[in-house]
Computed example of a mutant assay.
Amino acid sequence: MPIRAFILVLIFSLLAGCASRKGVYHTVKQGQTLYRISQTYGVDPTQLARVNGVSDPTRLRVGQRLYIPQASRVQTVPKTIKAAKSESAVAKLQPKVPPRSVSPVKTSSPAKSKPAPPPKSPTKGLFAYPVKGKIVKHFGERAGNINRGVEFAVPRGTTVMAAAKGRVIYSGNGIKGYGHLIIIKHRDSYYTVYGYNEQNLVANGVDVVRGQRIALSGVPPSGGQARLHFEIRIGKEAVNPIFYLP
């Protein structure tokens, strides 16, 4: 996909995320695997693991909640009694040996629309903190609303820094709900998003380095406490930034 077209797709995904917040949370039950869950909801298992920060898809916990992007309702994940008993026996006798039934998760390819295959598991410290402040809004679902990033409470006018080396592909205030916004493209299909800025200090097409000043923090368009909205995306899929920060 040409980079210009891909930028539009990414921006439209931000707009869609702000407007619809579509998605549900599935609670893992005994005998369910990430692969079975992904097949039931019709999503790519690698994408599902990446969005939820699951580094080892073979070891889901009963009661663990998985965010299913684009799903409109919670579904019942089918399983045979034989399969459930088999998984339980393997878990009891050999807890360190992952079930063979989930092997497709490791071999699945990322969506063809993504420029390059991303890493299969999060890397701590891959990105630096864009600001120093308390997280006041976490990634995921809260009170029925889905947040695709984290928000840091910081004084108005705080310097916002690039989380990693990359190129600015968007700098403006044309996306509703984000105020002055910056999107930076990094290697391996990673993107970082910086919203609610009072002022952007870099323009489209500018190359930046890790820790470089790119904006001054501001207040959300809806008002309230000054803060920075920060996202990390792989392609157009938002992932939990906590798994990638130091």
Rank of each mutant, 00 (worst) to 15 (best):
P2K: 08
I3Y: 09
R4W: 09
R4C: 08
I7H: 06
I11Y: 01
I11F: 02
A16Q: 11
A16I: 11
S20P: 09
S20V: 15
K22M: 15
K29C: 08
K29F: 10
K29A: 12
Q30H: 09
Q32R: 03
Q32N: 14
Y35V: 11
R36K: 15
R36V: 11
G42H: 07
T46A: 15
V51S: 03
V51F: 08
N52M: 09
N52Q: 08
R59G: 00
R61Q: 15
G63Q: 03
G63V: 01
R65L: 03
I68C: 06
V74D: 04
T76K: 15
P78R: 06
A84M: 09
E87D: 10
L93S: 03
P98N: 05
P99D: 04
R100Q: 10
V102K: 07
S103E: 12
V105S: 05
V105E: 01
V105G: 00
K106F: 15
K106G: 11
P110K: 02
A111V: 14
K112D: 14
A116D: 05
P117T: 11
K120T: 12
S121K: 12
P122I: 09
T123C: 02
G125Y: 02
A128F: 02
E141A: 13
G149R: 07
F152Y: 01
F152G: 00
A153M: 08
V160H: 00
M161G: 12
A163G: 00
A164L: 01
K165V: 11
R167T: 11
R167P: 04
V168C: 07
I169R: 08
G174M: 14
G177D: 01
I183Q: 00
I184M: 00
R187T: 07
S189P: 02
G195R: 07
E198W: 04
N200G: 06
G205E: 05
V208P: 01
R210A: 09
R213D: 03
I214W: 03
S217Q: 00
S217E: 00
Q225K: 12
E231A: 04
R233G: 03
K236E: 13
K236W: 13
E237D: 14
I242W: 13
I242L: 14
I242S: 15
P246A: 05
P246N: 09
P246Q: 06
